[in-house]
Design a protein around this nucleic acid. Structure first.
Lengths: 209, 209
DNA sequence: ACCCGATCGGACACAGTGTCCGACAATGTG
DNA sequence: CACATTGTCGGACACTGTGTCCGATCGGGT
């Protein structure tokens, strides 16, 4: 009676190799300064050293590729902000400055990929939804922080928390992306500080109207 | 002796007709919800009722078309902000709120075209430069306002005017664009107020550190 | 009548995308 | 060993969109 052993096929080892080559090649092309929209599949597979038809085994299309690439960044962006609170051990304006400084450094590391996401999100609904879901989480979190500060009497109770949260969260990344693309890192601390102080004094500790 | 009269050819009247048809058709397609990147030249000329080859008589390519369309908007964006000052007849937080409210209404009128500019600016260097030139003017104007307030002792002199100006001007339009795309006009006044108050109290009248 | 300029319609060449298919290589099983 | 399976490769095909070019037509001016 021959023994029956589950087939351990190394094809699973080989599949990720091609996929990883493609992901890595794409990141390299972005780092080389190419716009995602301008990079063709042929260029990617040439950089990766794989067959063009193999691309479509792993990815539905270029958008699918970008979403795969963006997947890990998405959670990290949220993680920067989720632990900050206006008061408490991780709280206050100086800690907020540090949060923004960490984000600036993150953007310096991943600027090209983040720009690609932003690029495609302007015209592709799926990428836009994918990326905005983390932004919406951040907005909700910020709205609840504002509401908490209002309940404690530390933030002007006349403010609509949802509206203010949208104003605060819908734009910060654009400043950071622009700063990173435009300026070297000498001003990182100052930009972080301005982002934090404008929000601290303009939102959380705005004088009572 | 036959009189010699400069030939007044109505081809100049006819040339703008095709061009105007193309410009109008593009705007209509944008208003219909199409992303600029997704609109092909064939679609535009069908909507305009002209020949496809005629498109290339008037425009080098789609980017050229967009820059033509964007030309008038560009100056208008700058005009909203250029007359505001922190103090004086056109100054202060309530007037800043009105400036932002006007901008929101402008975005409601021209939202699709502005989104198209934003879209193409992410991957086309020419459009990006074209649009950013007005943003840079706004940043410089804001930096000089901040410096003036510092000289008058009304804004914290520890702040770097250029850095703060960048933080204040590099992002507001994104909030407005998102708000217009996401929410109806019921909250326009509130969003305008938040945009203004965050900047007023967070930047121009930030407490001395 | 003739000339000129603009528009039209259509053909051509090219690039990029996605699908499909046969060939081949590597691995495991009986 | 033979056979089966799976993944990759290379290439062909069909389609779409873009930009260029050209002949035909039309309208207006002299």
């Amino acid at each position: 009676m021959p023994s029956t052993t589950r087939r351990h096929s190394p094809t699973e080892d080989r599949r990720p190799v091609v996929e990883a080559e493609i992901l890595g090649a794409t990141e390299q092309l972005l780092r080389d300064g190419h716009k995602f929209t301008d990079i063709g599949v042929r260029q990617i597979v040439e950089q990766a050293g794989v067959a063009r038809s193999s691309f479509y085994v792993s990815f539905r299309d270029k958008t699918d590729l970008l979403i795969r690439l963006a997947g890990t960044l998405k959670q990290q962006i949220f993680d920067f902000a989720k632990d900050w609170t206006p008061v408490g051990e991780n709280g206050g304006p100086e800690t907020l400055t540090r949060v923004y400084l960490s984000m600036i450094q993150f953007y310096r590391q991943h600027g090209e990929l983040l720009a690609a996401i932003n690029e495609v999100a302007t015209y592709d609904h799926e990428v836009e939804q994918f990326w905005n879901s983390q932004l919406n989480r951040l907005t909700e979190l910020t709205a609840s922080l504002i509401a908490g500060e209002q309940a404690a009497g530390r933030t002007d109770s006349a403010i609509n928390p949802t509206v203010l949260a949208q104003v605060l969260t819908w734009d910060g990344d654009r400043v950071i992306a622009r700063h990173v693309a435009t300026n070297d890192s000498a001003n990182d601390a100052q930009v972080a500080r301005e982002l934090a102080m404008v929000r601290w004094h303009g939102a959380y500790r705005r004088p009572q109207s």
